[in-house]
Nucleic acid binder design. Structure first.
Lengths: 201, 201, 201, 201
DNA sequence: CATGAATGAGGTTTCATTCAT
DNA sequence: TATGAATGAAACCTCATTCAT
């Protein structure tokens, strides 16, 4: 009786809601939000539409849940590294590398995040933008701190540097392959290195 | 009174095919490819669906045309700067800055490009990927040249650096606003600067 | 007042899928497959398009279902008569007459069958052809048996005789009228008679 | 300069109108009337739509022209054989065989004829039906003559016999293959034979 | 004679969502 | 909790025909 009830791949091991979310995440990442039908999701999850609408108010809700998970995760981790007791260049390096690793480890979620953000309903979009802004500002504060204390070059707007780094993070979904030559940590180290070098005074 | 009947953007001034393409570009950039219906495009362009399908074989074709235009433009400009007679750090800086300026100047096209690439039909997708690869390789060659000649740091994969820079270019559509504090040229100079600094040995 | 709300043929008495199939059959027979729109079918059946596509994968599927029904019916009946314990000329006469009667009794289905066969999708067409061939061969075997045993003229290809008879069956949809002078059984007897006479040695 | 003007397959050898009709006939036979678009016809004939509508009032007209040609041909030939100076059984045999041969020799036209008859506009349909009726009656008269004079069995309605034979003619398009084992003349002889044997008193 | 751009109605199909059970 | 039949709007696309040139 332990583990799964039946033998097919989509058994009842995980609670239905989680299974639906995981399936939707995979399909959204593979095909895009608009190209994925509710029917596909429930078929792949082995449930019926009624079940989906029991747990989620709409298809849009599913997308929002994916966002929520990835946003909470990244914010927590950024706070963790930014609050550490270390020189600012170390804290920035750690934070910059960590977001790369967690992005790669959750590549499906982040692909969806960056590609489908503009497909949320207006109200949810507003909410997500607010959380994104908070994240951006925390990261920017690190850069500004370094600029104030003279360890980073100050002749460049901190906002631009944030977008510079997140551009490369955003882009990971386009080119990173699990079976490529670099491990997530190696990519992270290289990208953090590039950022820190670019900020050398 | 010059041109045609009325003064707004949707009169009959431009040939129908061009008008359709321009309208589609704008709507795709604003709403995304999937969210934009053929009906919306033809209504906004002031023609009927029949006219659209007279000039374009499918909705997919419209997207492909947008891509073609931006790809040709960027490849031409990259070739121009990469072939120049100047030190490699100058050629890379110019190319890196130029792609930022032209991306901002064609922000609708490039937004579509980066967001909707994966929504092309398989055959067209293949074709676009091939052209993208050619672009990528030309850019990478510049970096490798600098690494070989010792003017750029050699302890980082050139491929990764290309994706590093194009991440920030890709990202422009997400944050750049015409009415923001920085002109396209200023953004370009800053981003090229960041790249060149990151590559200092 | 038995059954459901109203007394006309399109109430909710029959399950929706059956009602759709019956309606489609009638309309295909009257107007042809291509000339009958899905909208006409659902309007006549008193449901919406969504309902039709809930039960049938495509318009093509509807046609295929009609075929399936008539093919199964005719094959069963042919097998029944061909397997009987009687002289071959009796078995052939019975089979030949029966296919005429059942064709007339299901004239809508068979009209569609003969007129629209070539409008099936390639894969379904292949399947139908295979079943038709099986039917043809069973019928031919009867003729060949009579030819071998000397009760039928042997100087004519059995294949041709099968097509000779089925030509007249095929043709029934073109000229037979319910209110004409001959009952289905009379037509069947005459046509079987013609076939048997033509086969006299 | 003799013959054709240019080297492609659809040159100007034949007058445009004839070329259009021949092309339409082939396409209608291959794909059916409804499945063949005017665009396909003009593309295959190497002209433009304007040209087609210059010569033919509508797509329907093309179909009607195909019918007209085959109807005139068959009526002429039937009249010729029926008016001959020979015993009625000879005249019937010749007419019955001839319609088979000319049907096979114009199989495209006759396929269209039998399959698409019901797709004519009401007025043209009426006209075609009238000509068909005239043909049918001429053929029936031969049978009745033989029945009156005792050379044919009289216990069967002459109308039914006509449809019996024309069923097999109608059916030719379904099974006859140019590369099959029987020549048109052989098929014709066999089918005429079957008819005459069936009519033996 | 012939062109081909443009029309506008209609084609089949998909889909998120609801609701009686 | 969960089902799945049914909705109805909207999607992309096709086509016979017209008309200014």
């Amino acid at each position: 009786m332990a583990g799964t009830k039946d033998g097919n791949g989509n058994d009842g091991a995980k609670p239905v809601a989680q299974r639906l979310l995981a399936t939707a995440t995979r399909l959204f990442a593979e095909q895009g939000y608009d190209r994925t039908s509710v029917q596909e999701i429930v078929d792949a999850a082995g449930v019926t539409k009624g079940a989906l609408y029991h747990y989620f108010g709409s298809k849009d809700d599913l997308l929002h849940e994916v966002y929520g998970r990835v946003l909470r995760l990244q914010q927590e981790r950024l706070d963790h590294f930014a609050d550490a007791d270390a020189p600012v260049e170390q804290r920035l390096r750690d934070a910059a590398a960590d977001v790369v690793v967690t992005t790669i480890e959750n590549l499906d979620d982040t692909k969806i995040f960056f590609r489908s953000m503009h497909q949320l309903s207006p109200e949810k979009d507003k909410q997500v933008r607010a959380e994104r802004r908070r994240y951006h500002e925390r990261f920017r504060a690190l850069i500004e701190e370094g600029q104030r204390t003279g360890v980073f070059a100050a002749d460049i707007p901190a906002d631009l540097v944030v977008d510079y780094h997140f551009g490369s993070v955003h882009h990971l979904g386009t080119w990173y392959r699990e079976d490529g030559p670099l491990s997530p940590q190696q990519v992270a180290d290289h990208l953090a290195d590039l950022l820190l070098r670019a900020l050398r005074p």
